[in-house]
């Protein structure tokens, strides 16, 4: 099994705070992490490799510091890693990101499976996975909750996808791209041996010049159909809370129940 896992380094958005005076994000001290959904993709890749043999290659597009995320993936057990980093890639939206990643995957050669997290927690779009699949012309199975069956001989895979109404069981042919949800597994921590391997590994950095088959007009800001025109703080909900106070818990509960019944929401 030749498995490619696409990962993104993101700021831990749960740690992000807003400066109340300027309304800007306080990013100092906010740790950069592997997008949590991508860690499930890495784990699933490692499990498949342990079961079927082969190798796991992690690939990421981002600024030079995204190398940290790749090293962490290697420390977890990935065999190889590639960083796509170039000023030409900067300002990419999801279309250009998927294009660039798929060009790099083409350069890597034959593969059986591509794994991605269902979405990144900073952008929350979930569009890059389907974009890569379409660029490469392979099947996509999004929101995968469980790999039921994988047969490298007949090159088929059966998965359960987590949808609103329940779980859909789908079969497709390899090569395929899967995006995975949180409940698929419990990602392992990096190991000490893996940490040593990661710190000693020379991870190649590819720029636009390393993707000669690609149309460079589709990279980065100029290749991105969407443009951000305005960034602003989320509107505050009109908050006028009525705090219910009473002598006893039962009395407070009774007052609240009456008020909610009066609101006609029950």
């Amino acid at each position: 099994m030749n498995i490619i896992v696409c990962i993104k380094q993101v700021p831990d958005t749960t740690e992000v705070k807003i400066n109340p005076e300027t309304g800007t994000l306080i990013r100092e001290g906010v740790p950069s992490i592997i997008n949590p959904f991508d860690t499930y993709a890495i784990e699933e890749g490692l499990r498949l490799k342990e079961k079927f043999g082969g190798k796991v290659t992690v690939i990421s597009m981002g600024p030079p510091q995204a190398m940290e995320a790749l090293k962490e993936a290697v420390a977890m057990g990935a065999d190889e890693a590639i960083l796509l980093s170039d000023k030409a890639f900067a300002g990419s939206d999801t279309w250009a990101t998927a294009y660039t990643l798929s060009q790099a995957i083409k350069k890597l050669g034959e593969f059986d499976l591509i794994l991605c997290g269902k979405q990144a927690i900073d952008g929350d779009t979930g569009q890059v996975g389907p974009g890569i699949a379409r660029q490469l012309g392979i099947s996509q199975l999004t929101y995968v909750f469980k790999i039921r069956h994988l047969d490298p001989e007949s090159r088929t895979i059966v998965v359960e996808r987590l949808l609103e109404e329940g779980r859909e069981v789908v079969e497709t042919k390899l090569p395929a791209l899967l995006t995975v949800v949180k409940d698929i597994n419990q990602p392992r921590y990096p190991t000490f041996l893996g940490i040593r391997r990661a710190t000693r590994m020379q991870i190649p950095v590819w720029g636009a010049a390393d993707l000669p088959g690609a149309d460079s007009s589709k990279f980065g800001l100029k290749g991105s159909p969407t443009q951000v025109v305005r960034v602003f703080n989320p509107p505050k909900r009109e908050g006028k809370v009525e705090i219910i106070q009473a002598d006893s818990v039962d009395e407070a509960a009774s007052i609240l129940a009456d008020k909610l019944l009066a609101e006609k929401v029950i």
Partner: peptide
């Protein structure tokens, strides 16, 4: 601290 030390810190922190 070496890169190795920093990764050890990150791993143990995450674990804890």
């Amino acid at each position: 601290l070496t890169e190795e030390h920093q990764m050890v810190r990150k791993m143990v922190r995450e674990f804890a």
